[in-house]
Design a protein around this nucleic acid. Structure first.
Length: 332
DNA sequence: TAACTGCCAAGCAGGTCTTT
DNA sequence: AAAGACCTGCTTGGCAGTTA
């Protein structure tokens, strides 16, 4: 494959998308675009810049090399929740049938001599590893900042990270000490959205996120909903119990999410206080239930005491007046 | 049509600068 | 030094366009 083919392979989608974005701008009479189109445009502008840089790098002698996948480590910032690529995945089938058309981008490992670190192309790397082949890669000198921005932009442009994966990626970047500006750049997002992403990632324990998985169909609202609900420790407990149920394991990620959401959304049952009363030497027994909303006294009487219930009912007015007087004197 | 997503506006919190 | 003004970064609520 020629260098031109390589570039075409890497940037074909980007070129098409850029053309579409430029068309949108023209069709719009040159006014400043807002909303998703603007965001996509910004991401694509950056990708275009990356494309130009990579083109320059290749011109200056950088080339596609074949590397042993075992020598390549993932990025130091995790962006995906799903671990291995299954053998049935489209990307595995595609590479098996057509070969790896698009190289991945790596840098020399900053700490380990002779090893590499992926900037983007994690799924392709896993697929190639699964097939037991060498991986085709462009090796570039990249700073930490450049690596995470490249990683983030690629994911954003492909739109293949779920909401929670973006949130976890953002938190991971923040934990690594990257500033908000850079995180916004990497995720092609604004400060508002970043704030929400971080609040979701911080609000939901990693163990719960890991158990649910990427949940690709679930967006901001519903993740925020869960995060808000599990601020209640009881709801958190309910969520933890849900993910340990045997049927949970068998569900898909979206269904797992829905199951957890449904569980934490259930109104907690009011605690019930149940006690019993039995007088000395009497034949009557009472069961007392206090749910907080209702106070139930049920009497079980033997023949000898069967009039006690009626007697109690007749005396309710007196008992109530007595109780009120008692309460009043205590308050004074 | 419900849900997702990007964005705007308003408000809060903490830090810094200026004035008294 | 203390108080107030101002700035910056961030959060929250809600709206509107897009998508499946």
């Amino acid at each position: 494959m020629s260098r031109r083919d390589v570039l075409n392979g890497i940037f074909a989608d980007t070129t098409r998308e850029l053309a579409a974005a430029n068309f949108s701008k023209e069709a719009d009479g040159g006014r400043v675009l807002a909303g998703p189109v603007r965001t996509m445009g910004l991401a694509l502008d950056r990708m275009d810049q990356e494309a130009r840089e990579l083109r320059e790098a290749l011109k200056s002698g950088e080339r596609v090399v074949e590397l042993d996948p075992e020598l390549i480590d993932g990025s130091f910032v995790r962006d995906r929740l799903d671990g291995e690529v299954p053998a049935t995945d489209d990307i595995v089938r595609s590479i098996e049938e057509n070969g790896q058309e698009v190289p991945i981008l790596v840098r020399q490992h900053p700490d380990l001599e002779g090893r590499y670190q992926v900037a983007y192309g994690h799924r392709r790397l896993r697929a190639v590893r699964l097939l037991g082949r060498k991986v085709r890669a462009v090796v570039r000198p990249l700073s930490d900042n450049e690596l995470v921005v490249a990683q983030g932009i690629e994911n954003t442009a492909r739109k293949d990270l779920s909401y929670i994966e973006r949130a976890v990626f953002a938190l991971s970047l923040e934990t690594h000490g990257f500033g908000r500006d850079l995180i916004m750049q990497a995720l092609s997002t604004d400060k508002t959205e970043l704030s929400k992403l971080l609040s979701v990632a911080k609000g939901i324990p990693g163990s719960l996120v890991k158990a649910i998985g990427a949940a690709p169909s679930m967006g901001r609202r519903r993740w925020m909903d869960i995060a808000e609900k599990i601020t209640d420790p009881k709801a958190m407990e309910v969520a933890r119990n849900a993910i340990h149920r045997p049927e949970f394991e068998a569900l898909g990620s979206d269904e797992r999410f829905m199951m957890v959401l449904a569980e934490v959304s259930k109104k907690p049952q009011r605690e019930q206080t149940i006690s019993e009363w039995k007088p000395n030497g009497g034949k009557v027994a009472a069961k007392i239930k206090d749910t907080g909303r209702a106070y139930t006294l049920s009497l079980k009487t033997a023949e000898a005491d069967e009039g006690f219930g009626a007697y109690l009912t007749k005396r309710l007015d007196d008992l109530y007046a007595d109780w009120q007087a008692n309460r009043k004197s205590k308050q004074e």
